[in-house]
């Protein structure tokens, strides 16, 4: 059974359609990254999964049930974007309140505060917390009751680099324990290693979904190979240019070549064999490159539609 199953969902606000025929699923123990510009439909998708919105058409199933089901809500953790809490309560009181509402054991409260590094500040009022501390309290809140499905909306906003790393490690650990996670983010670098699949939304339409490898293949984005310490860089350069490769020299004995899908290994072999390269650097298209690619594609599609 999939943790989340969205089938053919469209969502309208008045006359505006914010989601067009979205079909998306999340497997058990899978981490899905949900990316898109502001107003792309990320938050709407989250709200549909949370049961805060009723889809205009199509079906949404969460943990095999209607998302409004309280059994679902008990097993679901949610970290909202820019999470806020009751300013007058202490961190511990806040978490205890939410633990009671979730039906989670109160003993979990102190453990979670320890886990997110808020134990020294737990008796202080939330009013005095920094943005990062509020974010960590929000995360602790989302983890109450050991949820099977976790929705994290911009979880790294306001976190320092170390806390961000901690968060990603936590995501990895939870995934290993079988928790399904949807991670919504603007911050692309650093995320890629921690997600199984990425979904890219633009203007309410799903542009692409799949693992990074399959997205790279689908997008056909080239890898960039940079080699240095070559014996005969000039000849290599000439040959490759003649063969239709995009290549340029870097420094005295270095080459940078654009490797379009399928040519990467051949180029590498040549570099290692005849070239006798001393150092090779391969730059794979990053999530950011992929994101940019699909966004450009979406934009040109829209421009074309607009012209017609």
């Amino acid at each position: 059974m999939n943790a989340v199953e969205i089938k053919g969902v469209s969502q309208q606000y008045g006359s505006m359609t914010v989601l067009h025929d979205l079909t998306l699923s999340l497997g058990e123990g899978e981490v899905l990254g949900l990316f898109g510009h502001n107003g792309a439909g990320k938050t709407t998708t989250m709200k549909l999964i949370l049961g805060l919105l009723q889809a205009s058409s199509g079906t949404v199933q969460v943990l095999g049930r209607n998302p409004k089901d309280s059994l679902v809500r008990q097993q679901l953790g949610y970290l909202p974007e820019n999470v806020t809490f009751y300013a007058q309560l202490s961190g511990r009181e806040t978490l205890r309140h939410f633990a009671r509402l979730k039906g989670a054991p109160l003993s979990q409260v102190d453990e979670l505060l320890e886990q997110v590094g808020l134990a020294p500040a737990m008796e202080r009022r939330v009013k005095t917390y920094s943005k990062g501390m509020r974010q960590r309290l929000g995360l602790a809140q989302a983890l109450l009751g050991a949820p099977r499905l976790l929705l994290l909306d911009e979880p790294t906003v306001g976190l320092d680099p170390i806390a961000t790393q901690d968060l990603y490690q936590l995501v990895d650990r939870l995934r290993q324990q079988g928790t399904s996670i949807i991670l919504c983010s603007h911050v692309l670098p650093g995320v890629e290693a921690h997600i199984n699949r990425a979904a890219i939304l633009s203007h309410g339409r799903l542009q692409a979904v799949g693992s990074l490898a399959s997205l790279r293949e689908d997008a056909g984005l080239p890898a960039l190979i940079r080699a240095s310490g070559l014996k005969q860089s000039a000849q290599l350069l000439q040959r490759w240019r003649a063969g239709g490769h995009q290549a340029r020299s870097v420094g005295i004995d270095g080459i940078e070549v654009v490797a379009i899908n399928g040519h990467k290994l051949d180029l590498l072999r040549e570099l290692l064999g005849e070239g006798g390269a001393q150092d090779i650097d391969i730059h794979q298209p990053s999530l950011e490159d992929l994101y940019r690619h699909y966004m450009d594609q979406a934009q040109s599609t829209q421009a074309r539609e607009g012209a017609v």
Binding site: L50, G51, L52, S70, L71, R73, Q74, L76, Y78, P80, N82, V83, T84, F85, Y86, A87, F98, L101, K102, G103, Q141
Partner: peptide, 14 residues
């Protein structure tokens, strides 16, 4: 306005 309503409504709470 405080932002807690949306969070509360995702809890098992009618």
């Amino acid at each position: 306005e405080g932002g807690t309503l949306m969070l509360l409504l995702t809890y098992p709470l009618g």
